[in-house]
Nucleic acid binder design. Structure first.
Length: 580
RNA sequence: GCGCCCGUAGCUCAGUUGGAUAGAGCAGCGGCCUUCUAAGCCGCGGGUCGGUGGUUCGAUUCCACCCGGGCGCGCCA
């Protein structure tokens, strides 16, 4: 169950019965355990409205809430806080229920469910994925998983950049100085080489530039030969992208990219013009915000148009995104779409969403933005000049550092992992560390990329949580027991048990909140707190050496901790290992 | 010029629609391996929450202005 939701509803109901006011209880977890587990802050807010002192509202509310068997103590403190301490018996019941729930470990279904598109990762064909793709890929995967976990029907879409003006250069370049063997062997490397050479050539050789434009025009008009070569570019690149996604354990429900909307683009522009939403200007066609009604104030004041067609007749990023939004709403039948894209594109999405509204799209659209990846000096990581940090090289480094750590443990006799299993553990730990380092930050902030910090494997980092899991797995291995067997009942006695139990009981609330707010770091924070609470419990409360009911309870606590760590990390795209 | 984001401990970051004495990790210092994995546990030190006003019972949080950093603004995506 969701205890925060339950207590909020309980408090709001009690408040309305006592005061006749239908106002929210303003329940939240306390920042300081000395103030109990949750606090109700409504009394201060209501005092003025009701012409009473805050304590006159808080006192009877506390009395009423104290009658619930979920609540051990309800105390009025300070100006009128009502501090609630959960009863250990209630928490234990919640945990028994979660332990018995083998399919969800206590995570509730959402009250209503939607069909949701999560648009993430979206690399370009013919280019390596680099750290700039890291955040969209990792955050998008986590968001998709979180929404699905509570029961939504979620479609993760890789809206790949597989169409556009660069294909003229690539087609001409391939024909004139491409290497077909290299294209088979390492497609992206060869395509990047060709593109670089072709774009340099086009700048100084007008005849070549002209040939490239002609090849592009042929491609766009459906020329079979060029289409076949383009498909070759896409399929060979796709094979390389798949290798990276496989390593990261990421899948998409759909690979519908920009090219899929190509045929719809003229219609989009025509419709916009028919509806009076766009008009030609200087040969191009755009949406001119000051001329439209029903647009947000900020856009109303924006002089720059949202261009949907260039002077030369070609379509733009905006046109494709409008076509995709229409498709997802009308054809896919999505009620919501999330665009997991760099914050620098906020202006684009603000306009995209506004124009979709004007076109009558009902689907909720949200730009899940995230900060820029910066280098160690705090400067945006450049990909064009100098050497780009590719995603593949980042993953290589992560895995090799993890492997070194594992071998060290094995050679010192601390770890017992067979040679042939070490690479698998290194992958889970190394890539888990990379993902965790990204996800644990509030996505809105810029992201400072730091190898050593990301792969230090200490403190608040992915391996810490995986390590907690491995310790639990080890307990069950030693005891010849299974994590899936239901133990218990849970009984919370030692302070470490009570603390661990209360963290475990909040899991469902956190999964819902992280998904609803599209903030995966709410879950990383919680799982870190869970691992910390477990580690303290582990030091203080022997499990296998305990006897009878105490042993059964501790086994249940340990098992539920492991299951929630595994499920929670799984939602973040991070694997657990039984030994590390 | 217009607009958006950011500024919290030496460093990297949390801080949930405004709530009590602002929290973590790293780095530093001191303890803990004959007891289920020391990638761990326990403890200590460290802050004008960029600045000034304002709103409020209450401001790191909301508003205004200023300082500092970053980003976006017609034919790239």
């Amino acid at each position: 169950m969701r205890i925060e939701k339950f207590l909020d509803e309980l408090s709001t109901r009690a408040l309305s019965e006592l005061t006749g006011e239908a106002s929210p209880a303003l329940l939240k977890p306390t920042a300081d355990p000395r103030h109990g587990d949750f606090q109700v802050n409504a009394a201060m807010a209501l005092a003025k409205k009701l012409g009473k002192k805050p304590r006159e509202i808080a006192e009877p509310l506390a009395e009423r809430l104290a009658q619930s068997d979920a609540i051990e103590r309800a105390e009025v403190a300070g100006p009128g806080f009502v501090n609630l301490t959960l009863s250990s018996a209630f928490v234990a019941r919640v945990l028994d229920e979660a332990a018995a729930d083998s399919t969800h470990d206590g995570v509730d279904r959402a009250d209503t469910t939607d069909r949701i598109v999560v648009d993430f990762s979206s690399p370009n064909i013919a280019k390596q994925m680099h750290v700039g793709h890291l955040r969209s890929t990792i955050i998008g995967d986590a968001l998709r998983n979180l929404l699905r976990e509570v029961g939504h029907e979620v479609i993760g879409v890789n809206h790949i950049g597989d169409w556009g003006t660069q294909y003229g250069l690539l087609l001409s370049g391939m024909r004139e100085f491409g290497d077909a063997t290299a294209l088979e062997d390492s497609a992206i490397e060869e395509l990047e080489r060709i593109y670089k050479q072709a774009s340099a050539r086009a700048k100084e050789d007008e005849a070549f530039a002209e040939r490239a434009r002609a090849e592009l025009a042929k491609l766009q008009s459906g020329d079979a030969e060029n289409l076949a070569l383009w498909e070759k570019f896409v399929s060979t690149t796709r094979a390389e992208l798949d290798r990276v996604y496989d390593r990261m354990g990421i899948r998409f429900e759909s690979w519908r990219g920009e090219s899929a909307y190509n045929d719809a683009l003229p219609g989009v522009v025509a419709t916009l013009q028919e509806k009076g939403l766009a008009r030609p200007d200087d040969g191009a066609v755009g949406v001119f915000w000051p001329e439209l009604d029903g647009v947000p104030a900020r856009l109303k004041a924006q002089k720059e148009p949202f261009l949907v067609q260039k002077r030369d007749g070609a379509f733009l990023y905006a046109t494709t995104d409008i076509a995709a939004a229409l498709y997802r709403s009308a054809e896919v039948g999505a009620q919501r779409v999330y665009y997991v894209v760099d914050a620098r594109q906020a202006g684009h999405f603000e306009q995209l969403i506004a124009i979709a509204r004007l076109l009558g799209v009902q689907m909720a659209m949200e730009h899940v933005s995230f900060g820029t990846v910066l280098d160690e000096a705090g400067k945006p990581l450049k990909t064009r000049d100098g050497k780009a940090v590719t995603l593949a090289s980042l993953l290589d480094e992560a895995e090799s550092r993890a492997l070194a750590r594992i071998r060290e443990g094995v050679s010192e006799g601390r770890l017992d992992i067979p040679e042939d299993a070490q690479a698998g553990v290194a992958r889970a730990v190394g890539i888990g560390a990379v993902k965790y380092a990204d996800l644990r930050q509030n996505r809105s902030s810029d992201y400072q990329f730091d190898w050593d910090k990301m792969l230090s494997f200490q403190g608040n980092a992915g391996p810490y949580l995986q390590y907690a899991y491995a310790r639990i797995a080890s307990i069950f291995d030693k005891g010849g027991l299974s994590l899936e067997d239901q133990r218990g009942p849970v009984s919370l006695v030692a302070v470490e048990e009570v603390r661990l139990g209360k963290v475990l009981a909040r899991f469902s609330d956190v999964v819902h909140q992280a998904g609803q707010a599209a903030l995966p770091h709410l879950l990383t924070d919680h799982l870190y707190e869970l691992a910390r609470a477990f580690s303290a419990f582990y030091e203080a409360c022997p499990v296998l050496k305990a006897e009878g009911a105490e042993r059964a309870s501790r086994l249940a606590l340990a098992a539920l901790t492991a299951r929630q760590l595994s499920r929670g990390l799984g939602l973040l795209g991070i694997a657990v290992v039984r030994r590390m």
